[in-house]
């Protein structure tokens, strides 16, 4: 069953006097619970389509249909609410808040998503997920004291703690070595399966394609 539809999405940037079209009409359907991997050379538009789908920038044309509504017609506040409650993000860098402990990173996300859970329930959820990502023993640690792999595991937990419907991952293992890449991808795969989360992931890494249910190759702003 489709959860998110990208219909004839185009994106044009102004480059001085010249209009540069980086997306030339993308059509893509994300199926519920599946991992879709976007691959392609640099400049093919894969990161642009991911950020547009995640509501971080607007499409110049086209529709992004999520739960029957077109994201491209929503105002900033409506998109923010969707980002906070229904979407999860994993970036290339972990982008953790430097002055929050590991468990507070997750508590903040629960607050932002305006969860209906009570305080003690929130704490239980956080601890449960930290155990799953094997970071419970470091729950009081601050980001600067974590290794790259640990930071990314916390970032994954933060992206999933509010049980989003879609996870957007922009090269989530780019800063990790191959052993840690495997660990992190296995973790993403297991968690999204268990929690029934749909994933759209941008990657350069061919190794990661084995974790995807659908592989979409992009070239020059079009799906091949």
């Amino acid at each position: 069953m489709s959860l998110f539809q990208i219909v004839e999405v185009k994106k044009t940037f102004k480059n001085g006097e010249v209009d540069e079209q980086v997306l030339k009409g993308i059509n893509l359907t994300l199926k519920e619970g599946e991992i879709t991997a976007l691959v392609g050379a640099s400049g093919s538009g894969k990161s642009t389509i991911l950020t547009i789908s995640a509501g971080l920038q607007r499409a110049s044309e086209g529709r992004l249909v999520f739960e029957g509504k077109n994201l491209n017609e929503m105002n900033q506040e409506q998109i923010r609410k969707i980002r906070a409650r229904q979407f999860g993000f994993i970036f290339q860098s972990s982008h953790l808040v430097p002055f929050l402990t590991v468990q507070d990173q997750l508590m903040v996300m629960l607050n932002v998503s305006e969860t209906k859970l009570k305080k003690h329930e929130q704490k239980e959820e956080v601890e449960k997920l930290l155990k799953i990502v094997d970071m419970y023993h470091r729950k009081e640690a601050y980001p600067p004291s974590l290794s790259g792999g640990e930071k990314q595991r916390v970032a994954i937990a933060r992206a999933l703690i509010h049980k989003p419907k879609i996870l957007f991952a922009d090269e989530p293992t780019a800063s990790l070595d191959s052993r840690r890449t495997k660990d992190v991808m296995t973790l993403i795969r297991e968690l999204t399966r268990t929690m029934d989360i749909t994933t759209l992931m941008v990657t350069h890494d061919e190794e990661m394609l084995s974790y995807a249910d659908q592989i979409v190759t992009m070239k020059d702003g079009l799906i091949q």
């Binding site: 971080l56 906070a84 979407f87 993000f89 808040v97 996300m109 932002v112 933060r158």
Partner: peptide
């Protein structure tokens, strides 16, 4: 920027 991206008002 990151806080805004994850949904902070």
């Amino acid at each position: 920027g990151i806080l805004k991206a994850i949904g902070f008002k």
